[in-house]
């Protein structure tokens, strides 16, 4: 994953601002832990055939403040299980950003993405530098890179490997003096 380029289709566009991701699996499943069950109910309220369309490496597109509310982990657990590898959104709610970075899930903040993509366009995303290339349209958008500690967390594959690295290196990231 480190320095990885994501290449996949924009499999769904959540254009509405302040989108509450709990709606993806439905709030009735906020305590569901079985991944197969989460996949089964995923996107049922939007398009019941969604799981049939997803291919490995597909990407989600989000609007402004994507992940607003009390974002639970179930929605993206289901998405990852289906093969989704990242989200490109206009912007993310801070809680969602922090929670999914801890899961090692690439997120790209990219103002203009809603205008810059149509469903099923193929995107090539350098998540670390937030460079989003729309291969279908042959256009390019430059987003805002994530805060460094969250990017490192994603690059490491999630919070736990990230912290194990911190433990083994005792690397000190100095603040300004």
């Amino acid at each position: 994953m480190e320095w990885g380029i994501l290449r996949g289709r924009a499999i769904w566009i959540f254009s509405e601002p302040n989108f509450d991701v709990d709606r993806i699996v439905g709030v009735a499943h906020m305590t569901t832990t079985r991944v197969e069950e989460l996949v089964r109910v995923c996107m049922r309220d939007f398009d019941a055939t969604f799981p049939d369309h997803v291919q490995p490496n597909d990407l989600l597109i989000g609007g402004d403040n994507f992940g607003y509310g009390h974002p639970h982990y179930q929605a993206m657990i289901a998405m990852r299980a289906m093969g989704i590898v990242g989200v490109v959104a206009e912007s993310f709610a801070p809680d969602f950003l922090r929670g999914e970075a801890a899961a090692g899930f690439p997120l790209v903040m990219c103002a203009g993405i809603l205008q810059g993509v149509t469903r099923f366009d193929v995107l090539e995303v350098d998540w670390r530098s937030a460079l989003v290339r729309n291969v279908t349209r042959n256009t390019e958008l430059r987003g805002t890179p994530l805060p460094a500690h969250l990017a490192d967390m994603i690059a490491a594959g999630g919070l736990l490997p990230h912290l194990q690295r911190r433990r083994s290196t005792r690397r000190w990231a100095p603040g300004p003096r």
Binding site: D95, G99, A102, A103, P147, L159, L160, L163
Partner: peptide
């Protein structure tokens, strides 16, 4: 600050990284 799962860092170390 509510730091979600990063709370593990605050238990495992005496400090947490942030921006």
């Amino acid at each position: 600050l509510g730091i979600r799962r990063q709370i593990l860092e605050a238990f495992a170390f005496d400090s947490v990284d942030m921006e």
